[in-house]
Design a protein around this nucleic acid. Structure first.
Lengths: 345, 345
DNA sequence: TTGTAGGCGTTATCAG
DNA sequence: CTGATAACGCCTACAA
């Protein structure tokens, strides 16, 4: 392993002063091309590699930010992280991605662990409890931005999709294709607030469902709103099964998010109900599920790219300028129509 | 934003020397409990936060490693990254995750960019060209370990699943459930080596397919080996369709990996062929696709956890001890039997 | 164009 | 138990 090769080693080997080496390694104008090339060659031969630590100490920062991603959920956040990387590197920042499990203190604890990490700010994705996470950030003194729509009360600048407007579009689409007895499928909030937070986005999507029906002059039948286990690997959706057993007027199902559609579709297939022929199904997110299931799913696409980019930009602004206000930043969704809601000919 | 609070600020405020503060902040034994607590309180009040850079400079390292993950593929690597984090933090190391796009130099270029990142080693996941990546690592002087089975020739210690043995198990399972006319579906290698590398794992899985058939005394019918576009969102699989049109003896399909099964199943559904009643389907990876499709997929589960943990352990060994030999480290897969291959009653 | 010297914030060593 | 001081490796005035 040997000793580390330093600037002065190179200087000595090349027979020049440290400053010259430093200038040669960077792209300073004040070096003659000849010495620059000579020094670079010597450095190369010696295997010189600048010390990130010393450089950071000297110039007072790492120019790196962190993104905390939930590692117990499927990768909808990947495009988000990618957008963060794009935006950050455009500003000369590195992005560190930290997978966070659900254990113990969860996110807040993970943030506390950041005290030993060379990072200057943090983007938190999916935050069940913004208050405790904010406290953790304050404790180690770094600014944060949230990509989160689970919290009713926010303590970070919080970026999300426009859940209410997006859900309205989906339900309106179902009505427009001739359906009127629309089931709303929600997840059972098992695991409690530590997993779901306030489930703010679910409430928003439900509110849209109710409002659209009311606006169309349709009754909101509470028996059509069902809760089911959130387990995409389950063989079926028993709650929906029961409902179908006692009510044969149902012609559409709006799932609060795409992943719920997997079990819903399995339940329908098991009963030989055709989608979209007998019943239309729609979701929300345009998550990977939407294209893998049969038939492919009509859904509202979350603007993951915009969300990630904005998060990075807001965070960088806190770093270099004044922190952005603690408020919601909502980005519109896009209705993606696929096979699962085609009108019956 | 104000000035940074340093150790000497705290020392001055507390009326002690810097050394004492340093000792109080760490957990050194040589401080009286009284002064320690007093100093910690002062530090707290002042909002003191140790400089990661200075500490690293002083003690010569960051104790952080990097994982380069492909950001253009779905998240099969998430459990891998998580296992890396677990193993590394057990050894007191942080893990930085870097999403890498397919652009230009791709992985090699991304590695070059690590020269400015406080990291001491790198785990590369899915490496189309190990040679160039190895050169990039050498150029910036950090050790690496690969989680990769695409390269025929390796330049890193390379961790992978036991593709040959795992694929044998799958094909043997298909035979055991009474099928004998088994199609093997491979992806078209569009995008070339920069995406697929040598596709070593595909060759291994195909070799297993051929060997198992031969061992069972069955002919290997080349017309049953087809290449299809690798696009899980495609509405169907035309190449399979053509084959089914001209050959009605087919009773099983082995997809080289799970993601190919999505279009295969769609093609079968469009032709009203029942799975597994008419045709059984199996995959490889136990990737998310396997549980989302209908019916759920029999497959060989890759030991992502073991792979990630081993990668971290080998890398840490290079850091603290002698580098592990450049060789393959293979971990056995597990046959997961689901609905798609149930024997017909 | 090149060399010298000081300091970034810590921790370790050595006296007291 | 505590305090002064010297590194760690680099960058950059400033001087030559």
């Amino acid at each position: 392993m040997g000793q580390r090769v330093t600037l002065s080693d190179v200087a000595q080997a090349a027979g020049v002063g440290m400053a010259t080496v430093s200038r040669a390694m960077g792209d300073h104008p004040d070096v003659s091309a000849a010495t620059r090339d000579r020094i670079r060659k010597v450095a190369q031969d010696l295997g010189y590699r600048p010390s990130v630590a010393a450089r950071a100490l000297r110039s007072g920062g790492f120019r790196a930010i962190s993104v905390m991603v939930p590692d117990n959920q499927w990768g909808w956040w990947e495009p988000v992280a990618h957008a963060c990387v794009e935006a950050a590197s455009a500003a000369g920042y590195q992005v560190l991605v930290h997978p966070v499990g659900g254990g113990k203190g969860g996110l807040a604890e993970a943030i506390a662990g950041l005290s030993g990490v060379p990072t200057e700010g943090v983007i938190v994705i999916s935050v069940p409890d913004q208050k405790s996470v904010r406290e953790a950030c304050d404790a180690i003194g770094i600014p944060g931005v949230a990509i989160d729509d689970s919290s009713a009360e926010i303590y970070f600048p919080s970026i999300s999709a426009a859940n209410y407007a997006g859900a309205r579009e989906v339900v309106e689409h179902l009505l427009a294709t001739g359906r009127s007895r629309i089931v709303f499928v929600r997840p059972q909030l098992s695991g409690g607030p530590s997993v779901w937070g306030d489930a703010f986005y679910l409430r928003e999507r439900e509110r849209a469902y109710r409002d659209v029906l009311a606006a169309a002059g349709l009754p909101v039948d509470e028996s059509l709103i069902i809760d089911t286990a959130f387990d995409e690997t389950a063989p079926g959706c028993p709650e929906l099964g029961e409902l179908l057993d006692r009510d044969d007027t149902i012609d559409a199902i709006f799932c609060a998010f795409d992943q719920l559609a997997a079990t819903v579709l399995r339940e329908l297939a098991a009963r030989d109900l055709r989608v979209p022929g007998d019943i239309a199904v729609a979701g929300f997110d345009d998550e990977r599920t939407a294209v893998l299931v049969t038939p492919q799913l009509t859904t509202a696409r979350q603007p993951y790219n915009d969300m990630g980019r904005t998060a990075a930009e807001l965070l960088l602004r806190s770093l270099t300028d004044t922190p952005p206000p603690v408020q919601r930043y909502e980005y519109p969704t896009q209705l993606i129509v696929r096979a699962s809601t085609q009108p019956t000919p």
